[in-house]
Every structure is written in C-alpha cells, then in structure tokens.
C-alpha cells in the first residue's frame, strides 16, 4: 500500500541555519505517528513546512499521490491536511459552534448573496452545517458548550475544540502540535482516549508532536526522533524509546 504522506529529504534554511535538513517520513493510512525530539529540534518547523506556513528550500511532500510541495496554507488545507497549534489558536470571539462551522466553510458552500437574502439554499446549508457541527462537538463532549464564547472555555476543552475544528475541514491527515501541553495527568489520559477515538471513528491518519512520553508510548504506532533538525531515529515506538542514542539525545551524556 502506498503511504498517505510521503516526505522526501525535506529541508529549510533560515539564512545559514539549517533548521530542518534531509527530513524523511512515510505515514501509512490510519496510522498514529509521533514526532518527538528535544526542545529546538525543529518539530514545529516540520509542521509549518507540511502545512505551508514555510516554503521548503528543498525536498518534496506528497499527500495521497499529490505533490503539495510549496503550496500555501489555504491550498494545503483544501488538499487535506488540517492542524492544531502549540499555543491554542481559536476564533476567540466566536461561539464554540461557530468555530466548528468556520471549519466546515469550504465543504458547505452558499454564496454571499444567498446569505444576505436568506434564500432557501442558505437555510438548507446552514441547517446541514449546524447538524454536522453538533455531531463533531458531540464526539468531543462539547455540545453542551456550543453557545459559549470560545475564549470562555476551560483550557482542556479549548484543545478539544481546536481538534474538532480541524476535523471539520474533512482532512486526510491531522497534525496535532503538542496536544497535551499544559494538561495534568488526568486530562492527558482523557486526551489519549479522544485521539484514539478520532482515529477509529473518523478513520483518520494522525501525526503528532508530543513531549509527554506516557502519551507517546501509549498511543503512537511509530515514531520519528528529530535532533538538531535531522532524523535521529525512526521505527516502532518501543524500539525507538529504548534506543540508547535517543535516550542520550534527551538526557545528555
């Protein structure tokens, strides 16, 4: 089976600094893949390259057979990559429901004029959007909060809402940037279940960055360890985590 995401010797330099160099990864469909590494290893830079925030200086990204190298954020999302952010980025003044409905924007369309004149099409599509958004919120047990302003949600729920919004764009690949950051052990446990649920329920392929080793060893099928912008180790989770070189990179000599 061909890999869903295939990244081939991806690299970017800022001035003379090679932030990421010769990064390779192949992610199979329906896989839960982890990207780990010490601080400053270039993990978020890889995410920014995959989602089009940065244009790679070399290398190639292929998603489901499509070459998506060098496209911008909007186009890459339409091709099927959605993401969450390390520091939560919600539409803070909009309601929880509307946050998800913005995610549904491109797949449920009516024109601006339909919106202004409240045509039957507007009503029909809005109703579909409401139903779909509520379905998604239900998966994350957020449907009771749907009329809250997003910024008024508790931290853990904000993380979940971000995932729900990303899923609303109907991606093929979901990128989670440190989903467990700032969570206590209980919340992390709950999050692990949620991520598993997302994979199974939506048949989703997930690539995540994480520092919490309990979460990584708990749910990831395979891992890539990044150090100083280069791949240090790649393979099955347990093998990688027990590798002496990886332990050295994290703990030092």
């Amino acid at each position: 089976m061909a890999a869903l995401l295939k990244v081939d010797s991806l690299g970017i330099s800022f001035g003379g600094l090679k932030a990421v160099d010769k990064f390779n990864v192949e992610i199979e469909k329906n896989e839960l893949y982890g990207l780990i590494g010490p601080n400053g290893a270039g993990k978020t830079t890889v995410f920014n390259l995959l989602t089009g925030v940065y244009k790679p200086t070399n290398g190639q990204i292929t998603l489901d057979g499509d070459n998506i190298t060098g496209l911008d954020c909007e186009a890459i999302n339409k091709k099927g990559i959605a993401r969450t952010f390390q520091n939560i980025r919600l539409f803070s003044q909009l309601s929880v429901l509307d946050n998800v409905k913005v995610g549904l924007h491109n797949n449920h369309a009516y024109s601006t004029l339909d919106g202004i004149f409240r045509t039957p099409k507007f009503r029909k599509v809005e109703k579909q959007m409401d139903e779909r958004a509520l379905e998604l919120l239900k998966v994350f047990e957020l449907e009771g909060y749907c009329d809250y302003k997003a910024s008024n949600l508790p931290y853990g729920q904000q993380r979940k809402l971000e995932i729900a919004r990303a899923l609303a764009t109907e991606p093929k690949l979901l990128l989670l940037d440190e989903p467990a950051a700032g969570m206590n052990p209980n919340e992390t446990e709950e999050l692990m279940n949620t991520i598993r649920l997302v994979r199974d329920k939506f048949d989703m392929t997930i690539l995540l960055i994480e520092h919490d080793m309990k979460l990584v060893s708990g749910i990831c099928d395979r891992l890539t360890v990044l150090n100083f912008g280069q791949v240090l180790k790649q393979g099955l989770t347990q093998d990688v985590l027990h590798d002496p070189e990886v332990i050295k990179a994290y703990l030092g000599d």
Partner: peptide
C-alpha cells in the same frame, strides 16, 4: 452568515483561519 463568520474568524485569528482553508 457563512461569509460573516469567515470575516470574523480572520479578525480573531488570521493564522488559524488560513489553516482551515
């Protein structure tokens, strides 16, 4: 409407708005 939501989403967080296409 859908358009207004998009406009307000861009106001609230431009980077996130780009990331949802």
């Amino acid at each position: 409407s859908r358009t207004g939501r998009a406009i307000m989403a861009i106001r609230d967080n431009r980077i996130a708005a780009e990331s949802v296409g």
